[in-house]
Amino acid sequence: MSLEIIGLSKHYGRDVVALNDVSLQLRQGECFGLIGESGSGKTTLTRCILGLEPPTSGRILFDGVDITRLGAAAMRRMRARIQIVFQDPYASLNPRMSAHDIIAEPMIIHRATLGLEHRARTDRVVELLGLVGLGPQHLSRFPHEFSGGQRQRIGIARALAVNPELLILDEPTSALDVSVQAQVLNLLHSIQQRLGLTYLFITHDLGVVRMVADRVALIHHGRIVEQGDTAQVFAGPTTEYGRMLLAAMPEPDPDLSPYRRG
């Protein structure tokens, strides 16, 4: 798989520019971190890649095919290859559906591509639950019976149900407790290793992105201001915004903490 975004722009009305000439390239099997504050255009970019909103101009090439110009049937097949895990695990699961139904639904929608019948779907749901660290005892439970971390695992299982090649992670840990964040990040990392997925990891958490991403890009007011290898960008940001952003990152060394007395 390869994803190439070329000169993507998105305007709302005449005055609001959500994305301004964004170009990115994701390589097979990497974790690409996209860093930006609220309102920087991160969410609009994901919605364009998922085909939920048409861009004003520019192209999104997935394996060389421009997905902004696909017909309805071709776009439907494409959706099985690009999936997303949302930020808020409390809002992203339908409260009226059981864990089984939530994870099985993508297989029903894409049964033409996946060819799984009823019995096989249930087996696959159990397999996916195991993959994300849950078990068959969770099949018939409803979202409100799970903790935040468990719900996020269900969201991950749902995204994996259609065997995607690219997984968009839209701040997958920012709504979770710190201890649970680490568990979910470790889970995402091991899944990537096992399934050979490509990740587009969107976050405003610099500590997290430094840990997980191979390469990063900074997005500011809908414009990519900096991109490169993670270590390189964090070591020496070349733009004013990059320097300002990285200077705001808390220092992990307690001796250098501003809260330290003496």
Binding site: L50, L52, M75, Q83, I84, S92, N94, P95, R96, E105
Partner: peptide, 24 residues
């Protein structure tokens, strides 16, 4: 978000209305 998730999965309008919106 769960409705947007269903759209991202490629669910058709009858499924989104019947399975996701109306029961809620």
């Amino acid at each position: 978000t769960f409705v947007i998730a269903a759209r991202a999965l490629g669910a058709g309008t009858p499924r989104i209305l019947g399975r996701h919106i109306l029961p809620n």
